[in-house]
Design a protein around this nucleic acid. Structure first.
Length: 200
DNA sequence: TGCCAGGCCCTCTTTAGGGCCTT
């Protein structure tokens, strides 16, 4: 995939954006031609405490968040860093909710397409034991990127997985793999993937 | 009042239910 894409991951205080869930950290990896060309990572302070379960999961504490830059300024920087690049995330429906919500908090919006490595892995790697990001990374023999459940390490894992999925797709269809093609593929039901690939 | 995610996918399905995946 020659084009530039931005692979994104949020750490948050909960599952649903709003009063209960706010972003605590964002990690973004810019990928060009399958190669990581730039990285962005920042903790962010949205003015909410981090629940103990989340501290245990991510290692991100309320004290760390309190001393971080305001969420709005981090999101403005993140939006500038991403620019017009299409986005990718693992279980993108989750990260998209927080991307849209946190951007809206500082008066910004985003219209980029989101490709989802979870949906793509279910279609292209059906034999994996499960489709968690960590499992897929180990199963495919992709490099370790650091502490799981930290935003930049998870974004790098998802970027490596995206590259692997691109290579897998390339082997199965004789045409260049683009973000637009991945977005089309993830909308095809799993059972119809062979037919979809054959018609390319 | 009490509860509280939601999109996707599979199947013992489609007038539904339950598991996966993200924090």
């Amino acid at each position: 995939m020659k084009e530039r894409v931005a692979v994104i991951d949020f750490e948050t205080t909960g599952i649903t954006p709003g009063r209960e869930g706010r972003a605590t950290e964002i990690g973004i990896v810019l990928l060009e031609g399958g190669v990581i060309v730039d990285r962005f990572q920042s903790l962010m302070n949205a003015g909410v405490p981090v629940p103990p379960m989340i501290v245990q999961l991510t290692g991100i504490s309320s004290a760390m968040v309190r001393s971080a830059p305001p969420a709005a300024s981090v999101m403005r920087e993140a939006a500038q860093f991403v620019g017009r690049a299409p986005l990718v995330a693992h279980n993108a429906s989750f990260d998209r909710k927080f991307w849209d919500y946190e951007l809206a908090q500082c008066g910004l919006s985003s219209a980029q397409d989101f490709a989802c490595t979870l949906l793509l892995a279910r279609r292209l790697l059906p034999l994996a034991p499960d489709h968690k990001l960590g499992t897929l990374t180990r199963w495919a023999g992709l490099p370790a990127t650091g502490r799981a459940h930290r935003a930049l390490a998870d974004a790098e894992m998802a970027a490596n997985l995206l590259r692997h999925l691109g290579e897998t797709l390339q082997q199965r269809c004789a045409r260049p793999v683009s973000h637009a093609l991945l977005c089309r593929l993830q909308k095809v039901t799993a059972a119809k993937v062979p037919q979809f690939l054959q018609q390319l």
